[in-house]
């Protein structure tokens, strides 16, 4: 394996991008991704907050302390991981985290790995999905992604701009990816509108940092309110209204997540009222 450390975007040519490493290094070690070449992109991806623009290389620890960004995003970053991880991990990398589904992590030949079965649907699935779970019941682990979905952020890559909702896609027979990024495409910046009020809440197995069982982001713009959930679907999940929770399709072991989400949504809506 070799490590390249390009100093400009033009010099990035293939290889596996590495920024904070909190995601990529464990995936490499577990053989879930393979690479001949690692590309340290820290010098080429924008960092910091400028107006409503956030560099994808900005650390979660910086965002959680930034008074200028929407409070839902600030709180989602604060709750996302341990202090050490938040001081290492970037917002861009956080958005591209792989699922914590143990079948996927243990390399079962599951739907997400290209197989024909979701082992979680028949097996252990306490931490899994209640929406979009027909073919793959994995849960997306990113708290900030839900916050960014609720505030209607736009993602700028080295090739295009797209609403964050379009960054993610449910895996299909033809394409098992959960993001729409092309090979080698890099997230560079996020454009994050400022809602009049926003809030993020999450339920975890522990009182201090853990992946979300259910995360709820709510944002208010004028008279409109937008809701998005973390940990409930293979991708961050936008919810048209609190009532849309009734359209959930929980598995026997995840029905409790619907009951967890209901009061969290109510509390988040109260907080931004």
């Amino acid at each position: 394996m070799e490590l390249r450390q390009p100093s400009s975007l033009a010099d990035v040519d293939g290889g596996l991008p590495l920024a904070g490493g909190t995601e990529v290094v464990p995936l490499l070690r577990d053989g879930l991704v393979e690479a001949e070449t690692l590309v340290d992109i820290r010098a080429v991806v924008p960092k910091g907050v400028s107006g409503t623009t956030i560099g994808a290389g900005t650390l979660l620890a910086e965002l959680e302390a930034d008074p200028e960004i929407p409070s839902a995003l600030r709180e989602a970053c604060r709750l996302a991981a341990s202090p050490q991880l938040r001081s290492m991990g970037t917002i861009g990398g956080n958005l591209l985290q792989a699922t914590r589904c143990w079948y996927w992590r243990l390399k079962y030949p599951c739907f997400l790995h290209g197989g024909s079965t979701c082992h979680a649907r028949q097996g252990e699935h306490r931490e899994h999905a209640i929406f979009g779970n027909e073919q793959c019941a994995s849960a997306h682990p990113s708290d900030p992604a839900a916050a960014l979905l609720a505030v209607g952020a736009t993602v700028r890559t080295d090739r295009r701009e797209l609403p964050i909702g379009e960054l993610y896609r449910l895996p299909t027979e033809d394409d098992r990816n959960v993001t729409a990024l092309e090979p080698g495409e890099l997230i560079l910046e996020l454009e994050v509108p400022r809602p009049e009020a926003s809030h993020y809440l999450k339920a975890m197995d522990r009182a201090r940092w853990a992946f979300p069982l259910v995360g709820v982001a709510a944002a208010r713009f004028g008279d409109g309110v937008r809701l998005a959930l973390a940990g409930v679907a293979p991708i961050p999940w936008a919810l048209d209204s609190a009532d849309a929770l009734e359209q959930a399709t929980p598995l026997p072991g995840t029905a409790y997540k619907v009951e967890l989400a209901r009061p969290l949504i109510r509390r988040a809506l109260d907080a931004i009222a």
Binding site: L3, T22, R42, L85, M88
Partner: peptide, 13 residues
């Protein structure tokens, strides 16, 4: 001066 996790930090970075 910032606490980080050395088990997932590549030494070359």
């Amino acid at each position: 001066g910032v606490p980080v996790l050395s088990c997932i930090t590549l030494v070359h970075t």
